[in-house]
């Protein structure tokens, strides 16, 4: 049992490496925020494409469904490895896209962002879909009977209501996304888990990993509480017939 405490709760190791681990945690946060926003946008676009009405739009719907199935079905780690491994060889992509170097962040950071956004975009698309389907049919009937086009009805009536419904599952998925950022370490990005492992490799002590866990929990627990509150607020509003 002593070994356990020595290995995981060595406060000296934690103290000495605190700033390195913290810097890496900042990378984790940046990864999560940037990918998260992109995934939210991509998810909405996918969900709307998937729901495009009319026979002419059948190929569009098909493509959207194929994309969603693909990225929900392949592990994020694989996506990370495939993208970072293949991009340098995709000649048809312009240089700035093949090996991006923006905002002072190296290409591997952006490969990570892309992988996470593409994958979580698919998850978010399904969440949006559930939200869109949960909006009562009467809403779109009323909108259409007033002469609103599909797009106008979506924009002003359906999507605003759908978004309100999906906030809890969205937040939940965001917490998952934030944890999944740790996967990009395999292509060399030093996010917080990798930083912990590097300290571990150099000091033969695992306490930096504990530190990483603590930092995560400091962010994810409040987020989880917010989700819980949103859920109960939603339930209350649904019961009152608002949502």
């Amino acid at each position: 049992m002593d070994i356990f405490f020595e290995q995981y709760f060595d406060f000296d190791v934690m103290r000495e490496n605190f700033s390195d681990v913290l810097d890496a945690f900042w990378t984790t946060i940046q990864l999560a925020l940037i990918s998260g926003v992109l995934a939210l946008l991509l998810g909405l676009i996918l969900a709307l494409l998937r729901a495009a009405p009319g026979r002419r739009m059948l190929p569009v719907r098909g493509l959207a469904i194929a994309y969603i199935d693909l990225f929900r079905g392949v592990p994020l780690l694989l996506v990370v490895l495939l993208i970072s491994g293949s991009f340098p060889f995709l000649d048809f992509l312009p240089e700035w896209l093949r090996a991006p170097d923006m905002l002072g962040k190296p290409d591997i950071f952006w490969y990570g962002v892309l992988s996470i956004a593409l994958t979580y975009g698919a998850y978010y698309a399904e969440v949006y879909r559930a939200g869109l389907e949960a909006v009562p049919l009467g809403q779109s009937e009323a909108a259409h009977s007033l002469g609103m086009s599909h797009t106008v009805a979506l924009r002003h009536v359906i999507v605003p209501q759908a978004i309100r419904k999906v906030i809890p599952p969205m937040l939940n998925d965001f917490i998952a996304l934030m944890k999944d950022t740790s996967l990009v370490q395999v292509i060399g990005v030093v996010e917080v888990v990798k930083a912990g492992r590097e300290v571990q490799a150099e000091t033969f002590n695992s306490s930096a990993l504990t530190l990483a866990a603590v930092l995560f929990v400091l962010v994810t627990i409040p987020l989880a509480r917010i989700v819980d509150r949103q859920i109960s607020r939603q339930q209350m509003l649904t019961q009152r017939g608002v949502l």
């Binding site: 060889f89 090996a99 290409d107 395999v186 060399g188």
Partner: peptide
């Protein structure tokens, strides 16, 4: 300027091939 560590040395070699390191 930066030292990138990989779990497998082969990943480091691959990164060298793609120009990431």
């Amino acid at each position: 300027g930066e030292v990138r560590t990989y779990d497998l040395v082969d990943d480091a070699f691959k990164a060298l091939q793609t120009g990431q390191v």
